[in-house]
């Protein structure tokens, strides 16, 4: 079953064609990687999928609903979460608070609930806290629960961002260069986390430059160059694709 279907997605900024008629489908529970040189339009594609920018043209179907006109917070509610290339944590909040705030749309209590504090409110807060601790444990940050997020080391910040994305209880997670700037040890830990997510049934779309990660983990790969999809297929097919080698891998492997 396909979870996501993108049809002829196009995004122009003034005269710049950031994404041009890109179409692809993502199967539920799979890991799809998007690769391509810098400026290929990968992050713009993510921004369209999460509602941060409105596509110029094209359709995005998630569970048969068109996302193109929805605001970001509604898209999160439908079950898409993401991380950012330049980590965007709530730096002055603790690790726990970062994850707790992400369960915002799962909770219901309103102004009067929070003022009068009925049993329902107290239970809900308790559930939020317990679940948050589970997500923190999942990414291995349980020793830093009360640390201010801005004070975490770089690699841990990336992991916290994933925990925060998971706390929105998504069906699909978009990860924008999750291993950027990491050493080999941290990278392989990150790959473990992604595999674990797949075991939990999450669908993953991954933007990644590290070919070891991409080839080691992806079910399918699509390749963007100057906003155009130039190839799509299994990792082995993409590796052998002549256009891809010319546009991208050729430069990387030599």
């Amino acid at each position: 079953m396909y979870l996501l279907e993108v049809r002829d997605l196009t995004k122009h900024f003034g005269g710049i064609k950031a994404v041009e008629e890109v179409s692809f489908k993502v199967r539920e529970g799979s890991i799809m990687s998007i690769i391509g040189p810098n400026g290929a339009g990968k992050t713009t594609l993510f921004n369209c999928l999460t509602g941060l920018t409105k596509p110029t043209k094209g359709k995005i179907y998630f569970l048969d609903k068109d996302l193109a006109s929805l605001p970001p917070h509604s898209i999160v509610k439908l079950g898409i979460a993401r991380t950012f290339q330049n980590i965007r944590l709530f730096r002055e909040m603790t690790v726990l608070e970062n994850v707790m705030v992400a369960q915002h749309s799962k909770a219901k209590s309103g102004l009067f609930g929070s003022i009068l504090r009925p049993q329902g409110f107290i239970d809900e807060e308790k559930t939020i806290k317990e679940k948050s601790i589970e997500y923190i444990e999942l990414v291995g940050l349980e020793d830093f629960t009360n640390t201010i997020a801005g004070n975490l080391p770089y690699g841990s910040q990336r992991r916290l961002e994933i925990a925060r994305a998971l706390a929105t209880e998504p069906r699909m997670v978009l990860l924008d260069e999750p291993t950027a700037g990491m050493n080999p040890q941290e990278t392989s830990e990150m790959m473990d986390i992604m595999k674990r997510l797949q075991e939990f049934g999450k669908t993953i779309i991954l933007i990644e430059h590290d070919m070891k990660v991409v080839m080691g983990i992806s079910d399918r790969i699509i390749v963007l160059d100057h906003g155009i999809k130039i190839a799509e297929g299994l990792p082995d097919e993409v590796r052998r694709d002549q256009m891809v080698i010319e546009a991208y891998l050729g430069k990387e492997t030599h």
Binding site: L89, F90, E97, V101
Partner: peptide, 30 residues
């Protein structure tokens, strides 16, 4: 009252917006 609202999901959403508005919308805050 302000203390209670502050330590609820409403208060957390406010602080999140202060810290990073784009990230806030990306985790489902309107």
């Amino acid at each position: 009252i302000i203390k209670r609202v502050y330590s609820s999901r409403i208060g957390r959403a406010w602080i999140a917006i202060r810290e990073d508005e784009i990230a806030s919308s990306a985790i489902g805050i309107n």
